[in-house]
Amino acid sequence: MIRFFHVSKFFDRCAALHDVTFRIDEGECVILSGPSGAGKTTLLRVIFGMEVPDDGQILVQNRNIARLHARDLPYLRRTIGFVPQNFQLLSQKTVYENVILPLIVQGVKRSEARRRVAATLQAVGIDHKQAIRAGVLSAGEQQRVCIARAIVTRPVIVLADEPTGNLDEELADEIIALFHTIHAQGTTVLLATHNQRVMAQMRGRVLQMRAGDVVSDKRMVT
C-alpha cells in the first residue's frame, strides 16, 4: 500500500526525513510517533504528494509519487483522506458545506452526496451541528468535521496528523475510538501523534521517529 525506499527530505540542509525505509500493507493501522520536529508531518506530506522527496522512492498504491505527473496527483489524492494538523476548514462555510466539498469535487450525484454526508456526520457525532459555520465550532468539533471530510469519500488510506492535538483526554478517546471504527471497516490508517495516551490506546504498529529517522518499528500487543 505504502512503501518508502531510502527516502530523504531536506529543508535548508536540515534533514526532516533521513534515509527512511518501511512499508505499510493494506488494512494496517500504524501510529507514527516521535517528539515534536521529528518529521511526522513531513512524512505524511510526502505520501500525499505535497512535498517531493530529495532522495529515494515512494510507492503509494503502486504509484511512484515523485514521478507522478502533477496532472494525475489529484486523482491519487481522491483515494486518500488527509486530516491535516491545522484543520484547514472553510471557516465561513457550514459543517455540511465543508464535508460535501470532496464529493462535489469528485462529481458525486447530489442525492448520493447528501446521503453520504448525513451518514458520515452521524458517524463522527456532529450531525446536529451541520448547519453551523465551521469557524465557530470548538476545537474538538472542528477535528471531527476534518475527519468527516477525510472519510466521506470512502478513501482506502486515511492519513491523520495529530488528530488529538488540542483536545482534552475524553475527547481524544472519542476520536481514537473513531479511528478504530474507520480501521475496522478496512481502511488503512496512518496516524501521527506524540501523545503517549493515544499510542497506548491504539492497537497496531508503532513507527517511532526521531530527528528524521525511523528509530523503531514495533507491533503493540494488547
Binding site: 486523482y75 491519487l76 489524492r77 481522491r78 470532496p102
Partner: peptide, 14 residues
C-alpha cells in the same frame, strides 16, 4: 487562497 489550498487537499484538479 484558503479555499484553493483545501481544494488541493481533497483532490480537486487544477
Amino acid at each position: 487562497r484558503e479555499e484553493i489550498e483545501i481544494l488541493r487537499l481533497i483532490g480537486a484538479t487544477g
